[in-house]
Design a binder for these strands. Structure first.
Lengths: 275, 275
DNA sequence: GGAGCGCTGTACCGTATGTTACGTATTTTG
DNA sequence: CAAAATACGTAACATACGGTACAGCGCTCC
């Protein structure tokens, strides 16, 4: 059963030629607004010619462009009159195989944040925003990209942020640079990596404060960590999900940025003037 | 402070002559749909003549009717992109400072998947699981970690998966290895990187099928992409969020794994025996 | 490698749309 | 009550919008 035009599109997008598919994608991307504008604007936004737009709506089964627009408007009207249906519609409009994954991830996010106190986050933010020391980030086989992601952001808003990459021997040598005032952010989920544990232990002995991102079963590194963030990872997949940790990381990035702005950090002002 | 057109109307409706007041009331009654239709339809619905409608919108301060319609559309866009859920949702169990970020991310995830059909995902999965060609992954400044994350998983379950890292000149040279049967997965969100666009264009010319992860405003690479995944990125932070794209990536990883298992790929069986 | 097909864009056309001028009706004011 | 000002609709107009014919191009399939 196809009720909305969006569904109709995604149903037929596979059978469309390249140009019309671009039209379909731009419409879906900012649905349904582009469709309410003129053919010329639509075509410009999609980067195709106007006839392609018209052929596109024709393929969807509409006699002409105005009829297509009317349909979009009717849909909008229905949506606006019952705003609840829009966000609540739990019988996922997308009854297929993907939604279990989405549902599980949404649950994981909520659960992860439920066990996360504001105080805990505030402490970590304060530590990360305190620029008397250096910040090192590292991750395991699958989580190292998370460390990179966080490092990419933090390195912009403050100096002395380093992502530890490459061979184990390489980052072991960086231990020399680490001391009491420094922070080490580690991402480690099952199966926990022995090399990371060793690294964390040594760093801990040197007085480095460790912020650990791990799963709900806690990596052994938790023993040495000053702050532990335990994210839910279970999803209906062969792999564990790092999405919850990813979102916590983004939250921290945002909070640290805000904190530094509040501190009136010169660097932030300079950055803004560069944009 | 008057923000919406509806407020503007109710503010001035007192000073309007009879005919225009009828127009105003008709518009408010089924706001804003009538305003998106033609002047003729609007006037008919209000029971007045077309010039009255035009005088009405002129009194609101608009130069002409199209300008008025654009304003209505912009308002709708803003309304649709920040779903009402934010106001309707149960006042988050965790009333603290982090929850806006979490709420926005949850919304982004739902919205992103709402615009994503099973068919579309299935097509991409089929392409990624089709092992007659190679798979290349690359990302932008902030999204390259996502490419790495995906590559780390895909490289385990199948051969010929390559993450393109380092200098632009390095991956440009890899173009030589790419052909019609190959897939290029690109992550690119605002601000879109010129170097990536050039790279995508050249790859496209070589017949490489491109799977693009981008934001809702679509990277210019969408022009060359066979498949486009548009994720929502807006969060209350100085940075855009890649969480939605991350979850889509995880979903794809899981689906590809399942697909290969279903295909009875020898590699998967070998992997299992190794564990 | 060649022939056929299908897709796409350019250029042009008819028309529906927004706009304006003007005459009539209605209300307001001295 | 008269006269003027304001409001409204009819009708004519110009623009820009949607629609179409056609030619070029790339792709696929012999």
């Amino acid at each position: 059963m196809i009720s909305s035009i969006a569904e109709l599109i995604s149903d037929r997008i596979g059978t469309m030629p390249a140009g019309e598919r671009r039209a379909a994608q731009t419409l879906i991307a900012s649905y349904p607004l582009i469709g309410l504008k003129t053919v010329a604007e639509f075509s410009a936004a999609a980067g195709v010619s106007s006839p392609t737009i018209l052929r596109f709506v024709a393929r969807l089964g509409f006699q002409n462009y105005p009829e297509f627009q009317s349909a979009l408007q009717d849909e909008l009207a229905a949506q606006l009159q019952s705003p609840a249906s829009r966000t609540l519609n739990p019988p996922s409009p997308n009854g297929g195989a993907v939604s279990p994954m989405l549902e599980a991830t949404l649950d994981n996010l909520r659960e992860t944040f439920r066990h996360l106190s504001d105080k805990q986050l505030a402490d970590i933010v304060a530590k990360l925003a305190d620029r008397r020391g250096k910040t090192f980030l590292i991750g395991g086989r699958f989580t190292d990209p998370l460390a990179r992601y966080m490092a990419a952001h933090l390195a912009i808003i403050q100096p002395n942020v380093f992502h530890l990459a490459g061979q184990e021997s390489v980052w072991r040598d960086r231990l020399i640079d680490m001391g009491k005032r420094d922070v080490l952010v580690i991402f480690d989920i099952r199966r926990y990596q022995e090399s990371l544990v060793r690294f964390a232990e040594t760093a801990h002995q040197r007085g480095v404060q460790i912020v650990l991102f791990t799963d709900q079963w806690l990596s052994p590194i938790a023993r040495f960590a000053r702050h532990v963030i335990a994210g839910r990872t279970a999803v209906p997949s062969a792999w564990d999900s790092s999405a919850a940790l990813f979102v916590v990381a983004e939250t921290l990035i945002g909070a640290v940025t805000r904190q530094l702005e509040a501190d009136g950090a010169k660097r932030i002002r300079e950055l803004e003037s560069l944009r």
